[in-house]
Design a protein around this nucleic acid. Structure first.
Lengths: 337, 337
DNA sequence: CTGAAAGCGCTTACAG
DNA sequence: CTGAAAGCGCTTACAG
């Protein structure tokens, strides 16, 4: 029963329980011992009045907002919502609020997003955009907000990093294909200027070498991370005169979709004539026919890790050097291999 | 140059500009006239000190947080991230912070999410889960937070509603097929217990009637909103002895994927033998081959509308009756029709 | 056109 | 084991 004409404050609880606001506060926080009988009275008063502490007052006093932000490059990419969900798994139970900002639009530049979040006094920020610059990281670190990123290097000392192991992921795909009997395994890459391009081809090489297979540069095509890239790469691999591969590892699912178009156009069956694999596990991967063998990025688990790293610094007093967390990913075998 | 040992406050600005904090506050808010020369001095001091107002102090004083929440049933469904992006388009420039909560998990029930958001004193909440109950809406309304929903009826007086016109969307699909010369147009529905099931079959009927075509119940199958549902529905339409349709309208894209599997298995070409359409425009729709004609839900536009309705009540003093906003959607013609 | 001062609802150092 | 009181940084009614 809130009193008429206003919200129930800690003072109302104190009055109802016949104690000071100090004691009510300590019952809530557990920051100092309270006699059991007193505590019981206070708790009864809290329940009876339906008291809920005001977060603005608390924030003002403790100089922390208990708000955390996630900045993403493109909310349309399903990876990022999953990341957000993972953060929630950990942070909601701790009472933190998570705000998600899409920094995709030019009108809403990363500069403006970061400024907005710092103005709002975020306690922690997870920066996912690959186009974030050291300037952004520095601004965040100097504001006192804790920082976690999804790529780059911890050498700048500006915060923790969480990522999944793309190289191991692709190596796992190669191992899977070798186990199934494939031997002439080709690779269609996207841009090698992008970090995933470099990491994934490294995985391809590692996979071959672990299987004792030679690296053959005729079997590797560097295109773009698009459907067209996959189409071009596959056509180039299948050109007349070339010794054909029996499997094609693609650096992402979109490339695999394009390669699938090209194979189908040539009347080749998948995986009968040629096996095909992707990377990312986009929604379409399961819906294509044949469904696409791929690697699932542990987006949710990455989100959880980000949240835990943040929480270490925010709530658990960790103040050590930046940490670099590398998570395993998961092969999803489907019909295409 | 923040002074050492603490953040720059409004008092520091006032001292630097040689005015009172009252005046600094009014320069920032524009709530009362300030002499141009005074304003200039204050603005210079703000710039020089890099002053940014503290949102907790402001919230405590004005008794609003300028925080808005979006609650979704499943962040994995790409519709909802788009909705969030649309809200951001409108609310970020106004200085609002948006928090997104996934209420999917049983461990994180809708009850708990709503409670968490009310504890955090959200000024406004957009409730997207179809499984939200009147109890949730009532709790929100009673807390004083403004409410916007994506379905239901405004008759309960508990807040505004924004939705897209599923019925018109499916009617548009039928019109499109008729324009392309198709006449025996079948419909595979999902569960009619779900609101989309009811609205979409209504669109099918409206489309037929607008085209002067008769409704033939042999051409309508009620299944589930899944790939299996589509497979079953298509098999049932194509069973021997039945007069075959020349087009199949599916109540969502997943159903269309299943129907595509069934048609392919029968050796039927799409759209040569039978045209096929979906609804929702999931990512896979563009990646299938043939790519799928479908209807795009204007998720981002819905998000913008939700934000505007909230802003009307939060910032612009609107205090009238609940509003029901119905947005048009967009036919995406692709190869399958 | 401007200022002094109260007060929003908490937490915590200080005191007992 | 408990309380009185200061103070976090703003906004605004009141006064001039």
């Amino acid at each position: 029963m809130p009193k008429v004409g206003g919200r129930v404050g800690i003072g109302d609880v104190a009055a109802a329980a016949g104690v000071s606001t100090t004691t009510v506060s300590h019952v809530l926080s557990g920051n100092r011992p309270v006699r059991a009988s007193t505590r019981a009275q206070v708790e009864a008063a809290i329940r009876k009045l339906g008291y809920r502490p005001d977060p603005s007052a608390r924030s003002l006093r403790i100089q922390r907002t208990e708000n955390v932000a996630l900045v993403v490059p493109d909310i349309t990419n399903p990876f990022f919502p999953q990341l957000a969900a993972g953060m929630q798994d950990i942070l909601h139970p701790e009472g933190y609020l998570i705000s998600v900002s899409d920094a995709a639009l030019p009108v809403r530049s990363l500069d403006a997003v970061v400024q907005h979040l710092l103005d709002r006094r975020m306690d922690g920020i997870v920066m996912a955009p690959h186009f974030a610059t050291p300037m952004h990281h520095t601004r965040i670190a100097e504001s006192g907000a804790k920082l976690v990123r999804l790529s780059g290097s911890i050498d700048d000392g500006l915060g923790d990093i969480v990522r999944s192991d793309d190289t191991a992921g692709v190596a796992g795909v190669v191992r899977h294909l070798v186990e199934r009997g494939y031997r002439r395994i080709a690779f269609i890459n996207g841009e090698v200027t992008a970090e995933p391009g470099r990491l994934r081809i490294a995985g391809y090489r590692r996979g071959l070498s672990e299987a004792g297979l030679d690296y053959d540069e005729d079997l590797v095509k560097t295109e773009t991370f698009t459907r067209d890239g996959g189409m071009n790469g596959a056509q180039s691999l299948l050109r007349r005169g070339a010794r054909q591969p029996d499997a094609i590892v693609c650096a992402n699912d979109l490339i695999a979709v394009g390669a699938m178009d090209a194979l189908r156009r040539r009347g080749l069956s998948i995986p009968g004539d040629i096996a095909l694999t992707g990377y990312d596990d986009i929604e379409a991967a399961a819906l294509l026919s044949p469904s696409l063998t791929t690697v699932h990025n542990p987006a949710r688990e990455i989100g959880r890790s980000c949240a835990r790293l943040l929480l270490d610094r925010l709530a658990d007093g960790y103040d050590g050097p930046p940490r670099d967390v590398v998570l395993p990913n998961r092969l999803i075998p489907r019909e295409s291999s």
